[in-house]
Every structure is written in structure tokens, then in C-alpha cells.
């Protein structure tokens, strides 16, 4: 079991929820809010992922003695 499997499911759920909210807002005629939900979902996903990438870079640095 790898740590971080739950985050993949979280990101997928995020995509589903954002799509639902987007469709809902678009039906209600609020196009600008619909677009904002897309941006927000993408931002939340990136915030979730960036620490992992940073961790990867640090580990590669320590393993290969890149300084």
C-alpha cells in the first residue's frame, strides 16, 4: 500500500464534483461562477499535488547527490 492512493481518488472526486457544480451553474445562467469553479478545482488539485513533487525533487537530490 502506497501512501497517497487516497489522494488520487480525492482528485477524481474533485473532478466529478467540479463538473456537476459547473453544469448546475451553467444551467442557472451564471457562466462566470461556472468558470470560477473550474479554476478553483484546478487550483485545489495543484495545491494537493505540488508538495509531492517537491518531495520527489528533494529525494532525487539526496539520492544522486545533486546540489
Amino acid at each position: 500500500m502506497i501512501g497517497g492512493t487516497g489522494e488520487i481518488l480525492f482528485l477524481t472526486c474533485l473532478a466529478i464534483v467540479v463538473t456537476i457544480i459547473h453544469t448546475f451553474l451553467k444551467q442557472a445562467g451564471r457562466d462566470e461562477f461556472a468558470y470560477l469553479t473550474l479554476v478553483l478545482g484546478l487550483a485545489v488539485g495543484l495545491i494537493e499535488v505540488i508538495p509531492v513533487i517537491l518531495d520527489l525533487f528533494h529525494q532525487v537530490k539526496t539520492v544522486f547527490n545533486l546540489y
Partner: peptide
């Protein structure tokens, strides 16, 4: 879905996980 960018984010995330 409406946010195909999240697909890229997920693939980056999994790539980082496998690498780690």
C-alpha cells in the same frame, strides 16, 4: 469531464508517487 487539466495533475501525481 469539464476539467481535463485535473487529468494531467493526476498523472503527474502518480508519476511522482511511482518515482518515490
Amino acid at each position: 469531464s469539464k476539467v481535463p487539466g485535473l487529468g494531467v495533475v493526476i498523472s503527474v501525481f502518480v508519476g511522482a508517487l511511482i518515482f518515490i
